[in-house]
Nucleic acid binder design. Structure first.
Lengths: 332, 332
DNA sequence: CTGTTAGCGCGTTCAG
DNA sequence: CTGAACGCGCTAACAG
């Protein structure tokens, strides 16, 4: 920056000002500075600026998986809202692992984000402590925790799964199974299973029809294996709810391979409303959750929270419920 | 850090040493320091450390889209290899837009990454200049540019598409169409189309069977629309190669909806070997490219290049060709 | 509108 | 094995 300043015949401070928006530098001076910047190929060093301004200009966002269109849609929604705000999004993937989340939280906090977003309401004790002590806005998304850390943008995964069970019941199905993961790694998946179990109980439908098919994230292939296992053990089943659209699609494709009519022999429902579900044949009945909308809401909230924080007027904890709907299509 | 030092009865310097691996601090002192760190909930500030050590501890990775399992698999591969190396991956998505890539390159360079990875071999002039001037290792991946910036990990998209055309020709198909984007935004898509056109020419097959279906990224729905358009205009077509598995799947599902037998009426081939293609029914013929392997190779290269750079012995430009294969399945 | 001074919170370097 | 002085590259705060 000193080199640029010398070349433009000004002080470093003036260069610093010229390089940031909304500053008071005369047009002529700015032009000379910009020319010097171009000539020298200078690129501002934010790490130094950060140290004196105490603003890093980024927010940390932790999602379970990059390769899940629900979460990448949410991440895109956040990034979209943050565009042009001077806040960049730094993405981390936890692989559905709370310990990895804990590590990532610390790794992110070391870089001093201006806010942090985590997925879900369950975290390790250490992660909770660090998040609470970080002194920055914290958002939990894709869930409705009972004891939130601070801000929340999400919906009840249990209620959403329950709504789907009620829908299937309303369609006349009476033996409704559930396909999900075999561990509690995916906490949203666990909540969905609980919501399913509760709905089945309340509707007085047969219980014990839960198939656990390996460690989350449950992918298409596991859905296919699970449906074969399920119908082998419980041939009376006439509908199945899957933890996500991916496993539901795997189940659907396997049924097609085996000549089991969907929905004739068996109805299939997914969760998440992936693009896949709108395009496959037959189109998949699913729970729509507006993943991009969650991201946009989180982005807006981040903007408000970070701005308030700078003005020393912390935003009171917000809880935003996002909608979910049962989208009945051709597999039920 | 001064607070921690005071509490542990040592100097700040000793705390700094205790907090990083492979340093020379006595066990007793370290224990006291760690206790103080826990008591105070102290989290190291990397932004400050970065300034004096001149090592930011992260590498920038730019991919076209988060929501594309090929690229997210690659990103995961990179992250996996970087784990435990002290290098973190900072991900950016360009939305298949070279101008957005240019902006992201500058935004990343402002934070002084120790290396940068970009997708593809085409960039704006300004981005090329900045990458070349950054003084850090640069990797281009998912392509085999003729004039690489420095390191390359990838394959020829044109050759891969050509190989699929030859495969279809070998199966006896004689009127082979192509479905892809209508702009050159997706430069890998453009290369695939060129590879297709060249192969068709060399095999003396009918030309003019290219369907452009909107701005990339081409998703499932566009594949479905394109196949209807295609067969309406060129009923003689007996096989189609799609720019990616997503559009191929969309085309497949639309054929099923309309009762067009695949591969009886029409063969369909995709590109990328997404999980979807291995699971759908019928299983999709595609070009397999080992997206995760590309990521792992990039990760290894980054480790070597960054280490060499620190020792003032820059790694000579590397070019790694990654394999692709035609995976014949049930749609051809 | 522009310059000067001081300092952000660490790690490097050297001395003990 | 530990400590002290110094500076990384920039921006806040104030003065002019």
């Amino acid at each position: 920056m000193a080199d640029v300043a010398a070349r433009a015949g000004v002080s470093a401070m003036t260069v610093s000002r010229a390089l940031k928006l909304g500053s008071t530098v005369s047009a002529a001076t700015r032009a000379r500075i910009m020319q010097a910047v171009e000539d020298l190929g200078y690129v501002l060093d934010l790490t130094a600026g950060t140290l004196s301004s105490k603003r890093t200009g980024f927010v940390a966002v932790l999602i379970p998986s990059l390769n899940n269109s629900n979460f990448s849609d949410t991440a895109r929604g956040i990034g979209h809202r943050l565009e042009g705000s001077g806040l960049q999004m730094l993405l981390g993937a936890t692989d559905y692992d709370l310990l990895k989340e804990e590590e990532l939280v610390e790794a992110m906090l070391r870089r001093r984000p201006e806010a942090i977003v985590v997925t879900g309401g369950r975290h390790t004790e250490r992660a909770r402590r660090q998040l609470a002590a970080a002194g920055i806005p914290v958002v939990e998304m894709w869930d409705l925790p009972e004891a939130p850390l601070e801000h929340v943008v999400g919906f009840s995964n249990a209620a959403a799964a329950g709504a789907m069970v009620e829908h299937l019941h309303g369609c006349g199905y009476r033996s409704i199974a559930y396909i999900g993961g075999s561990t509690d790694r995916d906490t949203r998946g666990t909540d969905r299973r609980r919501g399913y179990e509760r709905a089945v109980r309340e509707l007085k439908l047969p219980a014990g029809l839960t198939i656990a098919c390996g460690a989350p994230p449950i992918a298409m292939q596991q859905g296919g294996e699970a449906i074969v296992d399920l119908l082998g053990r419980h041939p009376e089943v006439d509908a199945v709810l899957c933890v996500s659209d991916l496993s539901a699609f795997g189940a659907l494709a396997e049924c097609q391979r085996r000549g089991w009519a969907v929905p004739g022999r068996l109805a299939i429902a997914g969760f998440g409303d992936f693009e896949l579900s709108r395009c496959c044949h037959p189109r998949l009945t699913t729970v729509s959750v507006d993943a991009a909308g969650i991201g946009e809401a989180v982005g807006d909230l981040l903007l408000r929270a970070v701005t308030s924080g700078r003005d020393k007027a912390p935003l009171p904890p917000q809880t935003l419920r996002t909608p979910f709907t049962v989208t009945a299509r051709e597999t039920s």
